[in-house]
């Protein structure tokens, strides 16, 4: 990873507002299971890049893409195929 890429690396705190828009819940304390490595991470800990045309969420353990969230033209496109399970209290 180049220095520039590492500088752009954020974490789940950076998409707390975006996730709250979508789920109407505080989601940074939710737990996601990576579809690739099976490890469980709190959403606040996941790796986030916002420099793509949308938000890209990666697993902090294996770097697998967990979610892609794109917003535009009054719509969301949410790919969550990299998260096997998202668990949160209601």
């Amino acid at each position: 990873m180049t220095a520039q890429q590492s500088d752009m690396k954020l974490d789940g705190n950076a998409i707390a507002g975006l996730l709250r828009e979508i789920f109407s819940m505080e989601m940074t304390t939710a737990e996601g299971t990576c579809a690739n490595c099976g490890r469980v991470h709190v959403v606040g800990e996941v790796v986030v890049y916002l420099n793509a045309p949308g938000a890209v969420v990666r697993c902090p353990s294996c770097d697998h893409v967990q979610m892609k969230i794109v917003q535009g033209r009054g719509k969301y496109w949410i790919d969550m195929s990299g998260v096997r399970c998202l668990e949160f209290s209601i």
């Binding site: 939710a30 949160f88 209601i90």
Partner: peptide, 11 residues
């Protein structure tokens, strides 16, 4: 796991 809460729309 910490409790989350239904917060409604972020305005």
């Amino acid at each position: 796991m910490a409790r989350t809460a239904v917060l409604g729309r972020l305005i």
